[in-house]
């Protein structure tokens, strides 16, 4: 494919679909999601509670592109 860039004509060969060959492999039967215990739930509640209070008092932006 001819691609014009900054006044130059560049011949960029198209990339064949055969390069798109990566797929994953399933690993089965290993994840066991248990109900959260009270200690974990407490930690979770403290985290979100503190964060929510902070956001209310001092709204700030998370950095991401």
């Amino acid at each position: 494919m001819i691609f014009c860039f900054l006044g130059r004509k560049l011949d960029i060969p198209d990339v064949p679909d055969s390069i798109l060959k990566t797929t994953g492999k399933e690993v089965t039967g290993v994840k066991k999601v248990k109900a959260l215990d009270s200690r974990t739930l407490e930690k979770e509640a403290i985290f979100w509670g503190n964060l929510k209070r902070q956001l209310k008092e001092n709204p700030v932006k998370i950095c991401r592109k």
Partner: peptide, 10 residues
């Protein structure tokens, strides 16, 4: 490639 998560897992 086989180590990557599969579509089903994803």
């Amino acid at each position: 490639a086989g180590v990557d998560l599969s579509l089903k897992e994803i």
